[in-house]
Design a protein around this nucleic acid. Structure first.
Length: 554
DNA sequence: TCCCCTTAC
DNA sequence: GAATGTAAGGGGA
């Protein structure tokens, strides 16, 4: 009986996982979730994605089980002393409560879908989603009745609702409309903060129900789109409230401690921004379903969770959240990733990676940031994902290195991504061409203090831009790392280095041509300037790949 | 510091 | 007939 119950739980968690992240979104309440989940399951079964999800789900289950075995031990313990600590913490937290202002969260209703409906009114009465057969970004309310939702593959949506109309994404249009809405908001609150294309947070003396009505009305008159709003004492509560009367409605939660506590107590924890599918499962295992349960279970939560997570839950229970309008804190990383139909050829992968690197460089430039750490992310056709990061920013080299052809290690990928992080706070605003971010690293930021970074400067720029590869001078004594072949060239000057780069690049080009013309499976083409491409400092990625390819052939 | 996981949209 | 995204933060070792 015990085991059949766990299998049942297991299946249920998998079904829920497959159903995706947004099953509680507005408009989905009336759906027969069981039936929808079953269809999703049937359609998904056997796919690589599915198998990967099964694994991930099992990992979460294991994590929960180990936590539960701890729970069993603690259950019987006397937690009196712990409760004293927790209750003191609660009192202290409660004193930080700020009820001095109204925060408003405005959220456009089914934003992309509504824009499309506005432009093609005949779609309004029909189930419609925005996206592609591969992936939907959102669905109108008519489609949601069938269980169609955002982040669902379109072909699965078609099974749930065969008459579904799928309209392609038009991000340029959505961005434009978003701009319109932001301008309206600015009139009411110059300090408002856009959370995304369709969410905005604001505060002001004027932020009372009537003003919010007025803003929503103005948005509607100007764009033909409806918005929903939540008004409460902090961002966390306001966000929850904006969902209550969606679509085209608003909800005000009074700035009153008792009202807030009562409101939050009966709220399922999953409604809290930051608590997702996994945390929901963990909490459920610990007998916490509503925010009120956090209090009941505070003793064991205190024992079982990290102080940070526990503190977060206490704040949730008290209904305390951030009241700052400006986005909290500076950005910590920027990344670009792309999914594509599976690529295996080194050249293809290399080119793709280069594209991604260029995009990332542009984004960094736009934000005037320099980074110290580069993380590469790779997703196999099996959906198994790995990341590797390096703190000396030589990703072009490692990136290229990874994909050196090795007959023994064919590699196929469905996604590659690059992330920049560990930003250097700097007032150096010149030479921020952040393809150039490597060369902008101040000496103090180099991993080895003895090495000093110097920049190849303007004179090379055009030539370098040609290939989007920057040059890094990594030592003081005229040693250069070639970004193409990764070889460190000792004691050469700029001219020699450039000559080397040219040869290298030509070789790569030649190699590309040769490879495309020849049958695959040939050995690595000669790459004369690079005597031993695998013998570089970046071989950890290579090593990884060696291992993982063997583990996951095909 | 690095790798993975989780989350929101 | 196949087809499941992108960006960011943070925890734990």
């Amino acid at each position: 009986m015990e085991s059949s119950k766990t299998t049942e739980d297991h299946t249920r968690s998998l079904l829920t996982r497959l159903a995706g992240p947004s099953t509680n979104k507005a408009g989905l309440q009336s759906v027969d979730k069981e039936k929808v989940n079953k269809i999703i399951y049937e359609v998904s079964k056997g796919s690589a994605f599915f198998e990967n999800e099964v694994k991930r789900d099992a990992a979460v289950t294991e994590k929960i089980n180990s936590m539960l075995s701890n729970y069993e031990k603690i259950k019987t313990q006397d937690l009196t002393a712990d409760l004293v600590i927790v209750d003191t913490q609660l009192i202290e937290l409660d004193q930080t409560r700020d009820l001095s202002q109204h925060i408003c969260h405005i959220d456009m209703d089914a934003f992309y879908a509504s824009v499309e409906e506005r432009d093609r009114p005949e779609l309004k009465s029909k189930p419609m989603a925005v996206g592609s057969l591969g992936m939907l970004t959102t669905a109108n309310y008519e489609a949601r009745k069938y269980g169609v939702r955002s982040a669902m593959p379109g072909y699965i949506a078609m099974r749930l609702c065969p008459q579904l109309i799928i309209v392609p994404n038009d991000f340029a249009k959505y961005t434009e409309v978003s701009g319109q809405i932001r301008r309206i908001f600015e009139k009411y609150d110059p300090d408002f903060s856009p959370m995304s294309l369709d969410e905005y947070v604001s505060t002001s003396e004027l932020t009372v129900e009537a003003v919010i009505e007025q803003i929503r009305d103005e948005i509607f008159r100007e764009t033909g789109l409806t918005a929903s709003a939540g008004i409460a004492a902090n961002k966390m509560l306001a966000k929850i409230c904006s969902d209550i009367n969606k679509p085209n409605g608003q909800y005000l939660l009074p700035n009153d401690r008792y009202a807030i506590m009562e409101f939050i107590a009966k709220l399922p924890v999953r409604k809290i921004s930051g608590i997702g599918r996994v945390t929901e499962r963990i909490l459920e295992a610990l007998e916490v379903k509503t925010c009120g349960d956090i209090y009941t279970q505070r003793g064991i939560l205190y024992k079982l969770l990290s102080p940070i997570n526990f503190g977060f839950l206490l704040r949730v229970y008290l209904g305390i959240g951030s009241t700052k309008i400006e986005s909290d804190g500076a950005r910590k990383s920027i990344s670009v990733e792309r999914t594509f139909s599976t690529l295996s050829k080194e050249e293809d992968l290399y080119n793709k990676l280069k594209e991604i690197a260029m995009k990332l460089a542009d984004d960094l430039k736009e934000e005037n940031l320099k980074c110290k750490t580069i993380t590469i992310k790779l997703k196999m056709p099996s959906f198994q994902t790995v990341t590797r990061s390096k703190t000396i920013c030589r990703y072009i080299q490692t990136g290229h290195d990874i994909f050196k052809y090795d007959a023994e290690l064919p590699v196929s990928l469905r996604l590659m991504g690059l992330r920049a992080s560990s930003f250097i706070s700097s007032d150096d605003t010149q030479n921020m061409g952040l393809k150039r971010f490597f060369s902008s690293i101040p000496p103090s930021e180099m991993t080895s203090p003895s090495k000093k970074a110097k920049t190849y400067s303007a004179s090379q720029e055009n030539e370098l831009d040609r290939d989007g590869v920057d040059l890094i001078k990594i030592t003081t004594n005229d040693d250069y790392a070639c970004p193409v072949c990764t070889h460190v060239l000792k004691n050469i000057d700029n001219t020699q280095f450039n000559a080397h780069i040219d040869i290298c690049l030509n070789t790569v080009e030649l190699k590309t041509i040769l490879t495309t013309q020849s049958v695959s499976g040939t050995n690595e083409p000669q790459h004369s300037p690079s005597p031993k491409p695998t013998a570089t400092g970046s071989s950890s990625l290579l090593n990884y790949f060696g291992n993982s390819s063997r583990q996951n052939p095909g």
